[in-house]
Design a binder for these strands. Structure first.
Lengths: 140, 140
DNA sequence: TCCTAAAAAGACCTAAATAGTCTACTTATG
DNA sequence: CATAAGTAGACTATTTAGGTCTTTTTAGGA
């Protein structure tokens, strides 16, 4: 239950690179892996859920590779994180109702739910197009 | 590198209960553990870093126990999370400068730094007094 | 048509973090 | 001085994260 693991971090770097290179041609993972210093076999495992989420399209065979399935403006960082971390919520107790028997009386649950919302709102507000653009200071 | 583990969740429940019961009398962990359904031995291990962080005070001997070291209004959820998770940042690559050799060129780093800030600002904005009060909807 | 480059799929492995337990010891109050 | 409490540290189990290996499938080009 880690919020941001290397899955999200590697995956986002892959997608930002694809966004930068445009959607015209398919790009093979090996070249991305080399440029980004990410193990190719590991990166290839991240591609599967990204395809399932409708973020990537793949083309097999020679001259094959990956390209974005949608425009960079239409893919948010939240889409990527959810596809790769495989859950919508960062906490068991806020995820499914009934996960915690105390949820009715628990005074801390709203705090974690609120945190969840803050995180999701932030990640939803950044698109791949934003990320691919010039270095932006999101901390302001 | 998990953002919110049972350490933070259990620890916050302990502190909220102490905040609710006031600072007048020391409260023993055993009774908190029973009411909150938390293994007492595990809870007792969380007390140590909370003491070190100046959040809890302990009193030994018969009629001993724990009480808050500061007023509930002056303890934020961020204080608690940092004391229990033992780190200030949720990501290696944003934590220490130089942790990632690519940080100069990395287009995704500012996104994670911004996330870090958003989370810290949120947690810093909630005090134990807030949490102990009536159920608040922090998601609004 | 065969060769090669690329994705697909799934088993497998290792290390680290998390959650929790056990035991022995120390301290303070009634 | 008995007892209820905290202190300290080793120990264990489970899960997750990170990464690797192998085989198969697909498509383009000489």
């Amino acid at each position: 239950m880690s919020l941001i693991t290397t899955r999200s971090r590697y995956g986002l770097r892959l997608l930002v690179e694809l966004a930068e290179r445009g959607m015209a041609q398919a790009i093979d993972l090996g070249s991305v892996a080399r440029r980004q210093d990410i193990p190719e076999l590991y990166l290839s495992k991240l591609a599967t859920p990204l395809k399932a989420a409708g973020i990537l399209r793949s083309e097999r065979g020679a001259k094959g590779g990956y390209r974005l399935a949608r425009r960079p403006e239409d893919i948010t960082v939240l889409d990527v994180v959810e596809a790769l971390e495989g859950r919508s919520s960062l906490l068991e107790c806020t995820g499914e109702p009934g996960a915690c028997v105390r949820s009715g009386e628990c005074k801390t649950l709203p705090i974690w739910s609120g945190l969840d919302k803050v995180i999701q709102d932030y990640l939803r507000g950044i698109s791949l197009a934003d990320a691919a653009g010039a270095a932006i200071d999101y901390t302001i």
